[in-house]
Design a protein around this nucleic acid. Structure first.
Length: 539
RNA sequence: GCGCCUGUAGCUCAAUUGGAUAGAGCGCUUCCCUCCGAAGGAAGAGGUUGCUGGUUCAAGUCCUGCCAGGCGCACCA
């Protein structure tokens, strides 16, 4: 009996081990009763026999046994150089992973409560979601981006009270002691001023306390939500839909979902409250749906919302949440399982915290005190490109140190410029070359054969790894995987540039190198596009 | 106390998900522009992968137990 072995090829970490590597001999050695090396030799011998007379043979330079029993495949130069023609013919689609079955994905992210401006934490989630959507779309999935707007409830009421308080301060021209739980940020004073400007002080004075509150609540929500949308827009992140919790409540879907849960017999009453038996699906404890004061918990409308997502026909739900929500995942999944959905179709990404540094000193943040660093400040200080790049540089489940000073510096230690510089530098070479791209002999293997230096082969190898990188990013939902790849590609280009001249007397060599360099530019542009970072022609 | 995340070079992080001699950037020490953009390139120094035991051909990666840091454990949202 054969043991269950996966026959997987991998790209060796080091170039000197060829383009593809296989470890069957290592895993089968014990079963075969031979040393891995001997077994590998036998496999290679057999394989070379099979290759004889096969068209594949033309594409493989050699197959060797190295190390403990690794079987390494080395491509011929012409096989490596094929990627150049491919990049040209596939154009923008180059790197799009093959053989993916398209899914309908609902990507929910940011979803910040409209009680204040977006913070750096939201910035990270926005960058992550925006980039993830681009990557999944590039892979052929249908992606719908949604922002769940938590526009009702206790916090929103408090927000309304806070604005009313500010408005009264302005009208009476006094300073009063603000209640402890109110929102104290300066943005509410601005919003109050603007709202009073529209309504007029006279009308405000005539309002009853209740009218003042309703008026203030609406003004606050509108002002803050407008600001949030503007921040996101300037950050280059767009949504297909803003889903209002208030509208969800009005639609009666929350009650309908509760009814469904009751019919499924997964709800019970105890101590005057209504509970979901979420422990049945792995949650730590059962959860309250309706409190003893008859109001809903946060969970209840959110269950209805996710139920609604499934009912709208999405195959996969991705939620991006902050680290303070990880305790929430189990109950959310349990609730959907209770409604008959497959909880494995929900993928929750927890974006860990961002710590801001300014010249080695930590910048403190606290929402309550109203002193926090906003996404707007990041935009103003470092710009969209650098901001997005920095937020995506690390994997999202690790804490992120964001050094404002480094991000602001237009110096070589800033990694985003390193990549953009390569792109701009190639544009400059293009200008020196002066002829049209379309006139180049893109599909001429004889000319591409001239790309035979170590630097050129390295670039060819890297270019052919782009698709794998995109695929890995999509599979793990980690856009950051593109960052080391692009840095390496840019680095390989800079090294090539320092050692070889592209435009020279030798016409064929010039053409070959132009095609190579333009291919590099095209892949850098594509990769930056997936991150949501621009690829400037000049810097 | 329980759960999740993290621990790798002086600093910030990688390591193709279990592969070969653990790699980059910054910082430090030296070099390289008569020539397509020096926002660049080359060389050097820097490591017991927090500690411990295990699993196997192979462990930074998986499992046990500790240690340290962060975040959570509501009839809040």
């Amino acid at each position: 009996m054969m043991p269950d072995i996966e026959l997987l090829f991998e790209i060796p970490r080091e170039e000197k081990f060829g383009e593809l590597s296989n470890t069957v001999a290592l895993s089968l050695a014990r079963h075969a009763g031979k040393s891995p090396k001997v077994l590998a030799e036998e496999i290679v011998k057999h394989l070379t026999g099979l290759l004889e007379g096969s068209p594949v043979k033309m594409r493989i330079e050699k197959v060797t046994v190295e190390g403990a029993g690794f079987i390494n495949f080395y491509y011929t130069q012409s096989e490596l150089a094929r990627v150049v023609g491919l990049i040209r013919s596939e154009g923008k689609d180059f790197g799009k992973p093959k053989g993916i079955s398209p899914k309908k994905v609902l990507l929910e992210f940011v979803s910040a409560n409209p009680t204040g401006p977006l913070t750096v934490a939201h910035g990270r989630q926005a960058a992550l979601g925006g980039s993830l959507a681009r990557i999944l779309k590039f892979c052929g999935h249908e992606v719908w981006k949604e922002y769940y707007n938590n526009d009702e409830g206790v916090q929103i009421d408090t927000l309304g009270e806070s604005l009313r308080f500010r408005a009264e301060e302005l009208i009476e021209n006094t300073k009063k002691d603000m209640p402890e739980n109110y929102y104290r940020g300066a943005y509410l004073i601005e919003a109050a001023k603007a709202a009073l400007g529209i309504c007029g002080p006279a009308r405000f004075k005539q309002m009853s306390p209740k009218d003042r509150f309703e008026w203030a609540k609406k003004a606050a929500k509108d002002a803050i939500f407008r600001g949030i949308k503007k921040d996101l827009e300037d950050f280059g992140v767009s949504f297909d839909n803003y889903y209002s919790q208030e509208e969800l409540a009005r639609s009666g879907k929350v009650e309908k979902t509760l009814q469904e849960l009751r019919e499924r017999g997964v709800v019970f009453e105890e101590e005057g409250a209504v509970w979901l038996r979420s422990t049945k699906w792995g949650d730590d404890k059962d959860r309250v749906l309706i409190k003893s004061d008859k109001t809903y918990t946060y969970l209840t409308p959110d269950i209805a919302y996710h139920h609604e997502k499934f009912n709208r026909g999405f195959d996969e739900l991705i939620d991006i949440l902050g680290p303070d929500h990880h305790g929430y995942i189990a109950r959310l999944k349990a609730s959907q399982a209770a409604l008959g959905h497959d909880p494995k179709k929900i993928r929750v990404l927890i974006a860990q915290l961002v710590t801001l540094y300014e010249g080695g000193k930590q910048v403190r943040m606290s929402t309550r005190a109203g002193e926090f660093v906003t996404l707007r400040e990041i935009l103003d200080e470092v710009g969209k490109d650098t901001g997005r790049f920095f937020f995506l540089m690390r994997k999202f489940d690790a804490h992120l140190d964001f050094d404002l000073e480094l991000a602001k510096s237009q110096t070589p230690e800033n990694p985003v410029f390193y990549i953009q510089y390569a792109h701009a530098r190639i544009e400059s070479i293009k200008n020196t070359f002066g002829k049209k791209e379309s006139d180049l002999p893109w599909q001429d293997p004889a000319i591409l054969l001239r790309l035979d230096s170590a630097q050129e082969l390295r670039l060819l190898r890297l270019l052919s790894q782009y698709e794998d990188t995109v695929l890995a990013a999509a599979r793990t939902l980690e856009p950051f995987r593109l960052v080391p790849y692009l840095t390496e590609l840019a680095g390989a280009f800079h090294k090539f540039y320092a050692e070889k001249r592209v435009v020279s007397e030798d016409a064929d060599l010039t053409h070959a190198r132009m095609m190579l360099v333009l291919s590099v530019q095209s892949v850098i542009r594509s990769g930056l596009e997936l991150l949501g970072v621009s690829a400037p022609l000049k810097m």
